[in-house]
Amino acid sequence: MYEVRRLRLLRDLSVHGTVAATAAACSLTPSAVSQQLSILEREVGAELLLRDGRGLVLTEAARVLVRHTERILAELEQAKAAVSALTSSVSGVLRLSAFATAAGTLVPDALAECRVRHPDLRIRLAERETPEALGTLKSGGVDVALVHEYNLLAGVTDPGVTVIPLGTEPLFVALPKESVLEPNADGELALPELRGEQWVAPKSDMALRDTLERACGLAGFVPDLAYTCDDYTVILALVRAGLGVSLVPRLAVEAVAAEVRLYPVVEPRLTRTVFAAVRAGSAEVPSVAALLAALRRAAESILG
């Protein structure tokens, strides 16, 4: 009989890629992870991991186990939800992860609502961007993760994760007030008109960077990335000072007082969809369902 704990470690290794990263995500030592995976190999009677330079790759046997493990873990989450639903109480500690612009806009209203509706529920918030948040969610480090995807890039597809769409927001181009560029009759700005402008781009949000570069490529030019920064207050301050233009999500504008001109982008049209992600099978856990409902209402009021 295979132990679920060891199967979960193998699944987590498939997510994080290295023993060290898996150990960090699971609050274990690398030697403990290696030991448990070695025991699992003996239980299975087949090689699960192969050395590839300094890294490890999963064998076909390991990939088969991971696929079955995803289903097992989803069933366990469903069992937890079914047992929890036997009580009408929404209580305990729930761990929420959110990317920065959601943490400053959607989350406060949702948490305030949960505090009023469910006073025995304690929600702990940590700020994480989408790739890290998904890995932490799958490893059990958080229970709900706010994540996003851009329409020009591949979306979140993972059998161990259920994503609930909360809303889609436009991406705006931010211009200094003295810019001579003018929107079309619909109040939108065509990306090809920004050829030759300098850009202020995010430093760590590589998905937005990739979206900017891909969109500009579709518009026929390569963006001149003059400045990079992760703080939207700084990004918009640089735009306001006339040092460049920037591509910003609507939630970033909601969270920061922007003294710049903002126009939705077309040619191509750019959007970002916000999701609440949970482990497969866990959406009906009463505390999780309560937070998801509050997040939906907060998103509806802000994103429409």
Rank of each mutant, 00 (worst) to 15 (best):
G160C: 11
L194I: 05
V163N: 01
E149C: 06
V156L: 15
P264R: 08
V173H: 01
L146C: 10
G220D: 07
K203W: 10
A207D: 15
V180E: 15
R240M: 05
V239Y: 03
P202Q: 03
R214C: 00
G167I: 04
K203D: 05
C216K: 01
P223G: 04
E254A: 05
V245Q: 02
D230E: 04
L175G: 08
L152E: 06
L208T: 08
G160N: 12
V180M: 13
N184I: 12
L251A: 12
S246L: 00
D231I: 01
E193R: 15
D210P: 00
A226Y: 07
L218P: 02
A237I: 00
L189S: 06
C216I: 03
P249M: 04
F221K: 02
G220F: 03
L171G: 07
L153V: 10
E259A: 14
L212Y: 00
P176G: 13
L208Y: 02
D210N: 14
Q198V: 01
S246D: 01
L247H: 01
A215C: 05
L238F: 09
L225T: 06
Y232V: 12
E254S: 09
E169S: 14
R214V: 04
L251W: 04
C229L: 14
L166V: 06
N151Q: 03
A255G: 10
L181S: 12
P170V: 10
P170F: 00
R209Y: 08
I235N: 00
L236S: 03
L236V: 03
N151A: 08
V163H: 00
L146G: 04
V239S: 04
V147Q: 06
I164N: 05
P165W: 02
K203H: 12
Q198A: 15
A174I: 03
E149W: 07
I235M: 14
V156Y: 11
S246I: 03
F221C: 02
N151I: 01
W199E: 04
P159T: 13
C216V: 04
A201I: 13
W199M: 09
G155E: 13
A207V: 09
A185W: 13
L225M: 07
T168Q: 12
A201R: 01
L218F: 10
V256Q: 02
V256L: 00
L251T: 15
A226M: 05
E149A: 15
S246R: 00
L175D: 07
G187P: 01
Y227A: 05
E254V: 07
A145L: 09
A252L: 04
V147N: 06
L218M: 15
D230C: 05
N184W: 12
K203F: 10
P170A: 04
P202E: 08
V265I: 15
V265K: 09
Y227E: 11
S204V: 05
V173L: 10
S246G: 11
A185N: 10
